[in-house]
């Protein structure tokens, strides 16, 4: 818990990660408008995919930063010496990442709705649940891989290569559920995808929690 507080505090003091994530995810949404003919039926169809591409890539930026400070300033050694389990460090970092990515996603969403002319207000609760579940899975996998990639020679390059193929199933479920929500479907129709997302989250969180100790040990 203290760890989450520390991460949030240092972020709110500098605001560097969140602001760059936010600008990036807005840019992705804007760029896709040029890639597809703006306002065309084509762009409307691709809207759920575009939303999730924006969230995924901006998420990677945030996850990349997650351990950079810890390693560069030697904080990780301090954390490891501190009298709590490695699992606690994992959950602290994961929660921090979850909060960062969620904030960026929530801020991107209104802009996205404006650009794509969505009347999403009625599906909003469903969409928020999908976003939360997906981001939870992203943070679990991302926190683990971020701790790995920060220690490799290529650093930022490595995270997407490790992260993207692993999260494909989560992404697929999220895009499908989102497409259904945009079509005006209710809770019952997306409950299958939601359950699938929850199951993935459970698997990835427990696996990442179990293996995190092996990554950070000295």
């Amino acid at each position: 818990m203290t760890l989450v507080y520390k991460d949030l505090l240092s972020e709110f003091r500098s605001r560097e990660t969140i602001s760059s994530m936010l600008v990036f995810s807005m840019l992705v949404v804007a760029i896709f408008n040029f890639a597809f003919d703006p306002g065309s039926a084509y762009a409307q169809q691709a809207a759920p995919g575009i939303l999730w591409v924006a969230f995924t890539f901006s998420g990677i930026i945030g996850l990349n930063r997650s351990f950079v400070h810890e390693v560069d300033k030697g904080c990780l050694h301090g954390l490891l010496l501190a009298p709590f389990e490695h699992g606690a460090i994992f959950f602290g970092k994961m929660l921090g990442n979850l909060i960062f990515i969620s904030i960026v996603e929530l801020l991107t969403l209104p802009l996205f709705a404006v650009f794509f002319n969505l009347q999403t207000l009625q599906g909003l609760p469903q969409l928020l649940v999908v976003i939360l579940l997906t981001t939870l899975g992203f943070s679990a996998v991302g926190t683990l891989f971020s701790a790995i990639s920060v220690n490799t020679k290529t650093r930022e390059m490595m995270l997407p290569i490790l992260f993207l193929p692993v999260v494909i199933p989560i992404l697929l479920a999220a895009v499908n559920a989102t497409a259904m929500i945009f079509d005006g479907k209710g809770w019952n129709d997306i409950s299958d995808w939601l359950r699938l997302l929850a199951a993935f989250d459970l698997i990835f969180i427990s696996l990442a929690y179990l293996t995190f100790g092996f990554v950070v040990e000295e």
Partner: peptide
């Protein structure tokens, strides 16, 4: 160690990918 951790996550991912 890193590679082993990744291999474990990746192999768990395979049935999940297929199912989804």
């Amino acid at each position: 160690r890193f590679a082993a951790v990744f291999a474990i996550i990746a192999s768990a991912d395979v049935p999940i990918v297929y199912m989804s």
